[in-house]
Amino acid sequence: MEWLEFNRWSQDVQKSIALQVARLSEVSQHLPKTQVTATQAYHLQSMLRRHPPTNPWGHPSAES
C-alpha cells in the first residue's frame, strides 16, 4: 500500500502548515471566550436530529 511508504512532508508543506498554525494561534488569542450552556447544547442536538446525516464520500454509515 502506498500510504505505508510515506516518510514525511516536504519542506514546502511543513513551512505552509507552520504558517497556518502561527496564524491560527494568533487569531485564536483574540477571540472572545464562549460558554456553552445546557440550553444551547440541547438546541444544537435538536437541530442536528432534524436533519439527516450526510455522507458525501459514499462510505457506509457508522451509525444507523
Rank of each mutant, 00 (worst) to 15 (best):
M1H: 07
E2L: 06
E2F: 02
L4F: 10
E5A: 11
E5W: 03
F6Y: 10
F6G: 05
N7G: 14
S10F: 01
D12T: 15
D12V: 15
D12C: 04
D12F: 06
V13T: 12
Q14C: 06
Q14P: 02
K15P: 00
L19Q: 05
V21S: 01
V21L: 13
R23A: 07
L24K: 13
L24S: 12
S25H: 03
E26G: 05
V27Y: 04
S28C: 15
Q29A: 11
L31N: 08
P32D: 13
T34I: 05
T34W: 02
T37E: 07
A38R: 13
T39R: 14
T39E: 14
A41E: 13
Y42F: 08
Y42H: 13
L44D: 09
Q45W: 10
M47R: 15
L48I: 06
L48R: 12
L48C: 02
L48Y: 14
R49F: 01
H51M: 14
P53N: 00
T54A: 06
T54N: 08
N55Y: 02
N55K: 02
P56T: 00
P56D: 01
P56G: 01
W57T: 15
W57C: 14
G58W: 00
G58T: 12
H59G: 00
H59D: 00
P60W: 00
A62S: 08
E63R: 11
